[in-house]
Lab assay of single mutants.
Amino acid sequence: MAAAAAAGAGPEMVRGQVFDVGPRYTNLSYIGEGAYGMVCSAYDNVNKVRVAIKKISPFEHQTYCQRTLREIKILLRFRHENIIGINDIIRAPTIEQMKDVYIVQDLMETDLYKLLKTQHLSNDHICYFLYQILRGLKYIHSANVLHRDLKPSNLLLNTTCDLKICDFGLARVADPDHDHTGFLTEYVATRWYRAPEIMLNSKGYTKSIDIWSVGCILAEMLSNRPIFPGKHYLDQLNHILGILGSPSQEDLNCIINLKARNYLLSLPHKNKVPWNRLFPNADSKALDLLDKMLTFNPHKRIEVEQALAHPYLEQYYDPSDEPIAEAPFKFDMELDDLPKEKLKELIFEETARFQPGYRS
C-alpha cells in the first residue's frame, strides 16, 4: 500500500510507478496490472468513496492506442447498470505532455475469474450472474457493438453480487458484411471463450460470437473449470467437437473457408456428449439454455433477447427493466489503419471533457 500523499506533496508512487492523480484522489492501494497499465484503488475526496484507477501508458504502440481509444469512446457513450462506466479521466493539459491516461471507475471487490478459483456457486448465484451478463449484453448488442472478449476476468463483482462487464478494448461495431482481413492475426481474445466460426472463417462476425462466450462462462460457473481449455488453435476446435459432436452437413455448409471445411470433413465422426453427463448436478433449465448458447452453427445460436426470456431466468426476466441503447454506435473511421500519432490526438480530444474549465 502506498503511503497517503500529504496535501501538495506531488504524485504518489505505487510499486515504483508514478500515479499522478492528486489532489482529488489519494490513499492509493495496488490492485493489479494488465498488459499496459496498473490498477489501484484510491480515495475520492470529492465523492467520499474509494474508486478504481487504471493507469494506461499506450502511446508507444499502435495496438494499445487503438484499444484505449475504443474503450474510452464506447464506455463514455454507454450507460447501463451492468456495464462499468467511466467516472473521470485524468491526463496532462497538453498533448505533448500526455504520456499516461488515468481512467477512474467504480471500485468492484472482485471478478468472476477470482471468485470461481475459490468458491463453488449455488444455482441461485449462477442464475443471477447469468441474468446480469445477458442484461448488459442486450444493451451492448442493441448499440450494434460486439464485445468480443467476454470471459470471467472481464466480469466485475461486488459483495452485493452486482455484476458489471468491463474491458471493451477489443470491441467492434457489428459488421457481418465487412471482410476484416487479418482478423485472426489481430484477434487476441482469450482462445477458450472463442466461437468456432472465428477459427473457421475470417469473413465478418456477428453478435452470436458473444453468446458463445457467455455459454462458455455459464459452463464454467457450473463446474469451476473452463469447458474448452484448448492449448492452441486446432486443439481448441477438437475440444469443442469432442463435446458438441461432429457438425451436420448443414452446419458445414455455413463454413465459407474450404480449407477449414475440408479439415472438419477429414475428422472421424464424434457423438455429442449429453450435458447432464458433463454437469450431473446442474439445473435442467440451465443445461437447456447452455445447449442453445453453445450451438456450433452461429445462425442457430440463441440471441440475447431470447436467452433473457428463457425459463431458467424467469424469476428475473423483465423486458421493461432491460434497457437498450438510445442509438446504434458508430465509429467515424476504422481505427485499425491509423498511425499511433493520430490515435493519440483522438484520445486527447475524447478525454477533453474531463479537463478543468472544459467548454463543449
Rank of each mutant, 00 (worst) to 15 (best):
A2N: 15
A2I: 15
A2K: 15
A6E: 11
G8V: 00
G8M: 15
A9M: 15
G10H: 13
E12K: 01
R15N: 09
G16M: 13
G16E: 03
F19W: 13
V21A: 07
V21S: 04
V21H: 02
G22P: 06
G22N: 13
Y25E: 03
T26I: 01
L28C: 10
L28K: 10
E33A: 10
E33S: 15
A35R: 06
A35E: 03
Y36S: 10
Y36T: 12
M38H: 06
V39R: 05
C40P: 15
S41Q: 12
A42K: 12
D44R: 11
N45T: 06
V46T: 15
V46M: 11
N47F: 07
K48L: 06
K48I: 08
V49R: 08
R50V: 09
R50K: 03
V51F: 05
A52R: 02
I53G: 13
I53D: 07
K54A: 03
K54Y: 08
K55H: 10
I56P: 09
P58T: 00
P58K: 15
P58R: 14
F59T: 15
E60T: 15
E60R: 08
E60M: 10
H61Q: 02
Q62L: 01
Q62A: 09
T63R: 05
Y64F: 01
C65P: 07
Q66H: 00
R67N: 15
T68G: 14
T68Y: 10
L69W: 15
L69A: 11
L69S: 11
I72Y: 12
K73E: 02
L75E: 13
R77H: 12
R79H: 12
R79G: 04
E81Q: 12
N82L: 07
N82R: 06
I84Q: 07
I84P: 15
I84H: 04
G85F: 13
I86D: 11
I86A: 15
D88R: 14
I89G: 13
I90R: 15
I90E: 15
A92L: 13
T94Y: 13
T94A: 11
I95P: 14
I95G: 14
I95S: 10
I95D: 13
M98D: 07
M98A: 13
D100G: 13
V101S: 05
Y102W: 13
Y102C: 03
I103Y: 08
V104I: 03
V104P: 07
Q105N: 13
D106R: 13
D106A: 12
M108W: 12
E109T: 12
T110A: 04
D111K: 06
D111M: 03
L112F: 10
Y113K: 03
Y113W: 08
L115A: 11
L115N: 12
K117M: 01
K117N: 00
K117F: 10
T118E: 08
Q119W: 12
Q119T: 13
H120G: 12
H120P: 06
H120N: 03
L121S: 05
S122G: 12
S122F: 11
S122Y: 09
S122V: 13
N123A: 10
D124M: 11
D124C: 12
I126M: 05
I126W: 05
C127F: 01
Y128R: 10
F129K: 06
F129T: 13
F129M: 10
L130T: 13
Y131R: 14
Y131P: 11
Q132V: 07
Q132S: 03
Q132Y: 08
L134A: 05
L134F: 08
L134V: 06
R135M: 10
K138I: 00
Y139I: 07
Y139K: 06
Y139P: 07
H141T: 10
A143G: 11
N144E: 04
V145Y: 07
L146R: 05
L146F: 14
H147V: 04
H147G: 02
D149I: 06
L150P: 02
K151L: 03
P152W: 02
P152L: 03
N154M: 02
N154H: 02
N154F: 03
L156K: 03
T159P: 03
T159Y: 05
T160H: 08
C161R: 03
C161F: 01
D162F: 11
D162T: 14
D167H: 04
F168C: 08
F168E: 04
F168R: 04
L170I: 09
A171N: 08
R172E: 02
D175L: 06
P176K: 05
H178W: 08
D179K: 10
T181M: 08
G182S: 05
G182Y: 06
G182L: 03
G182T: 04
F183Q: 08
F183E: 06
L184D: 01
L184T: 03
Y187M: 05
Y187W: 05
V188T: 07
V188F: 01
A189E: 01
T190P: 02
T190V: 04
R191I: 04
R191D: 03
R191V: 03
W192G: 01
Y193V: 01
A195T: 01
M199Y: 09
M199P: 05
M199N: 13
L200V: 01
L200D: 02
S202M: 02
S202P: 11
G204T: 12
G204S: 12
Y205C: 03
T206N: 04
K207H: 07
K207A: 07
S208I: 13
S208W: 06
S208K: 12
I209N: 01
I209K: 03
W212F: 05
S213D: 02
V214R: 04
V214M: 02
C216A: 06
L218G: 01
A219D: 03
A219L: 01
A219W: 01
A219K: 01
E220K: 01
L222A: 03
S223W: 06
S223E: 05
S223V: 03
N224R: 06
I227C: 09
F228P: 09
F228R: 05
F228H: 09
P229G: 04
G230M: 10
K231C: 10
H232D: 11
Y233S: 00
D235H: 07
Q236K: 01
L237H: 03
N238M: 09
N238E: 09
I240D: 05
G242V: 05
I243Y: 14
G245K: 03
P247L: 03
S248L: 07
S248A: 03
D251F: 08
L252T: 10
L252F: 13
L252I: 13
N253P: 10
N253T: 06
I256M: 07
I256C: 04
N257Y: 00
L258H: 11
K259N: 01
A260T: 04
R261W: 03
N262H: 10
Y263T: 07
L264D: 05
L264K: 10
P268G: 14
P268L: 02
K270E: 06
K270N: 00
K272D: 11
V273H: 13
V273L: 04
W275K: 05
N276Y: 01
R277M: 11
L278I: 14
L278H: 13
F279I: 00
F279E: 05
F279H: 15
P280Y: 08
N281W: 11
A282E: 13
S284D: 12
S284T: 01
S284F: 07
S284H: 12
S284Q: 05
A286I: 15
L287P: 02
D288Y: 00
K292E: 09
M293L: 01
T295E: 08
T295A: 06
F296C: 04
N297G: 09
H299K: 07
K300H: 10
K300P: 08
R301S: 01
I302K: 04
E303R: 11
Q306A: 12
L308T: 13
A309Y: 14
H310I: 03
P311H: 00
Y312E: 02
L313Y: 09
Y316S: 15
Y317Q: 15
D318T: 15
P319W: 10
P319T: 01
S320M: 10
E322Q: 14
E322S: 14
E322L: 14
P323R: 13
I324W: 10
A325W: 12
A327V: 08
A327I: 15
F329I: 00
F329H: 15
F329D: 12
K330H: 14
F331G: 14
F331A: 15
D332E: 02
D332R: 08
D332A: 06
E334I: 15
E334K: 01
D336M: 11
D337F: 14
P339I: 13
P339Q: 00
P339G: 09
E341M: 14
E341T: 13
E341A: 13
K342N: 00
K344T: 10
L346G: 07
E349G: 11
E350I: 15
E350P: 15
T351M: 14
R353I: 00
F354T: 11
P356F: 15
G357T: 15
G357A: 05
R359T: 09
S360E: 02
